[in-house]
C-alpha cells in the first residue's frame, strides 16, 4: 500500500514540520483504534519550548537494515524531559521477528533464536509501545531505523502507516560537526583542513557522540541501554547547543 504524502512537497526546505496539523489530517483517515487514539491525543505545538516537551527515547535492535525484509527484535523506551530521564519508567520488550533472525545481527544484540521463540509477535507489544509514545516527541539516534521500521511493522500488520515527530540526535551531531548544509567551498576548506591536520571526520555514532559530552561509555546494542544513552545524549546536546526555550520545531523532523 502506498500513502501519498502531499504535505511533504508543500513544505519549503528549512520550514519546520507542522506536526499538529499532520496529526489532524491523519486523524481524518485513520482506521485502527490505537492509531486513532494516538493522533487524537495530539502533540505539542510547534512553538513549545524544549523544557516543556515530554519526550521518549526509543531504540530498536533489528535483524538487519531493510524495513521491508528485516524485523524488530527488541525495543527499549525511556520517557524523559530536559530535567530528568525517567529510566525508572523505562520499558523493554523482546519480540519474535519470525524467521528473520540472522546470524550476523545476533553478534550485535546477542539475542538468540531460542530466546525469541517464546516471545510474542510485535502486534502484542504495539499497544504498550504506542501508548508510551502518545503525546510525546520521540528521540532517536539515526531516525531512519526507528521511524521506518515502526512504520513498516504497523503497515504489515494493520495495513496503514504510522507517523510521529522525531528528534534525531545523530542529525544534530551531523549539523554541528559536518558542513553538509554549507556551500561546496566551505566544505572543501573544512575537508582540506581536516586532511592537513590529519584529523578524520568526527564519528557520528552514538558512543562517539557521547564521548564529546563526557558521557560515560555504555556497552552498546542493548535496546534499553541505547535508549537511555540516547536520552542522555540529547540532554547533553540541549545543555550545550540549545536553550530550554528553544522551540521544539527547530529540532523535530
Amino acid at each position: 500500500m502506498f500513502f501519498p504524502r502531499p504535505e511533504k512537497w508543500k513544505r519549503r526546505k528549512g520550514e519546520p514540520l507542522p506536526w499538529r496539523g499532520l496529526y489532524e489530517k491523519r486523524l481524518a483517515q485513520v482506521r485502527h483504534l490505537l492509531l486513532r487514539e494516538f493522533y487524537q491525543a495530539g502533540v505539542v505545538d510547534a512553538g513549545t519550548a524544549l523544557a516543556d516537551v515530554p519526550m521518549v527515547a526509543l531504540d530498536f535492535e533489528t535483524t538487519g537494515f531493510d524495513p521491508d525484509k528485516d524485523a524488530i527484535v527488541s525495543i527499549g523506551l525511556v520517557p524523559f524531559t530536559l530535567r530528568r530521564i525517567f529510566s525508572s519508567r523505562g520499558q523493554y520488550w523482546v519480540v519474535n521477528p519470525g524467521k528473520r533472525l540472522k546470524k550476523e545481527s545476533v553478534v550485535f544484540h546477542r539475542i538468540t533464536h531460542s530466546e525469541v521463540q517464546e516471545r510474542p509477535d510485535l502486534s502484542e507489544v504495539l499497544p504498550g509501545l504506542i501508548t508510551a509514545m502518545t503525546q510525546s516527541v520521540v528521540v532517536v539516534h539515526y531516525r531512519q531505523i526507528e521511524r521506518r521500521f515502526l512504520d513498516a511493522a504497523v503497515r504489515q500488520r494493520w495495513e496503514e502507516g504510522f507517523i510521529f515527530p522525531v528528534i534525531d540526535t545523530m542529525d544534530i551531531e551531523a549539523r554541528l560537526h559536518r558542513q553538509d548544509d554549507k556551500g561546496w567551498w566551505t566544505r572543501l576548506k573544512a575537508h582540506l583542513a581536516a586532511r592537513l591536520l590529519g584529523r578524520d571526520r568526527q564519528s557520528l555514532r552514538l558512543a562517539a557522540s557521547r564521548t564529546r559530552y563526557n558521557l560515560p561509555v555504555y556497552s552498546p546494542h542493548h535496546a534499553l541501554t541505547d535508549a537511555l544513552a540516547t536520552a542522555e545524549l540529547f540532554q547533553a546536546q540541549a545543555a550545550w547547543h540549545f536553550t530550554p526555550q528553544t522551540p521544539v520545531s527547530d529540532l523535530w523532523r
Binding site: 530521564i85 529510566s87 525508572s88 559530552y213 536520552a231 540532554q235 545543555a239
Partner: peptide
C-alpha cells in the same frame, strides 16, 4: 531499576 538520570554540563 528505580534510578532516574540527569546530565549537567560543566558549570551548571
Amino acid at each position: 531499576a528505580n534510578a532516574d538520570v540527569v546530565y549537567h554540563k560543566a558549570g551548571s
